[in-house]
């Protein structure tokens, strides 16, 4: 659990300085606690992003258990949900992202 959490922290820290770049992809991963699905989902998206976007991305992990109101604000129903906030339009992918193909379709990378 803790390890996962640090990871998300580090990724956020890593990405933040480069945020200035316009074409940087912004992805939000909504999870509810450090469940195995959440961990799998994070691993999967990280892998995909590394492959496809190199450094040109930023992943925010949002734990709904800690901030339940975000679920309301961002209209999250299923977890894990990956939301592509940038580039627009916003796109949602639900599930543990184990199907790489559909993630790529969902993110419109291909």
């Amino acid at each position: 659990m803790k390890i996962k959490h640090e990871k998300s922290e580090t990724s956020r820290q890593k990405e933040q300085p480069v945020k200035a770049r316009r074409d940087k992809w912004v992805l939000c991963l909504y999870v509810a606690g450090q469940t195995s699905k959440a961990v799998t989902a994070f691993k999967n998206i990280k892998l995909i992003c590394e492959e496809q976007l190199k450094d040109n991305y930023q992943i925010k992990v949002i734990d709904l258990l800690k901030n339940p109101h975000i679920a309301h604000d961002d209209q999250i129903l299923a977890v894990p949900t990956l939301v592509r906030k940038f580039p627009l339009p916003v796109r949602n992918i639900i599930g543990d992202l184990s199907n790489t193909e559909s993630v790529l379709v969902g993110l419109n990378i291909r």
Partner: peptide, 16 residues
């Protein structure tokens, strides 16, 4: 707006 990839649950709804 929704694409599915892998298993999910409705924890978000539960939380809300």
């Amino acid at each position: 707006e929704i694409e599915q990839s892998g298993e999910y649950n409705l924890e978000g709804l539960f939380i809300r």
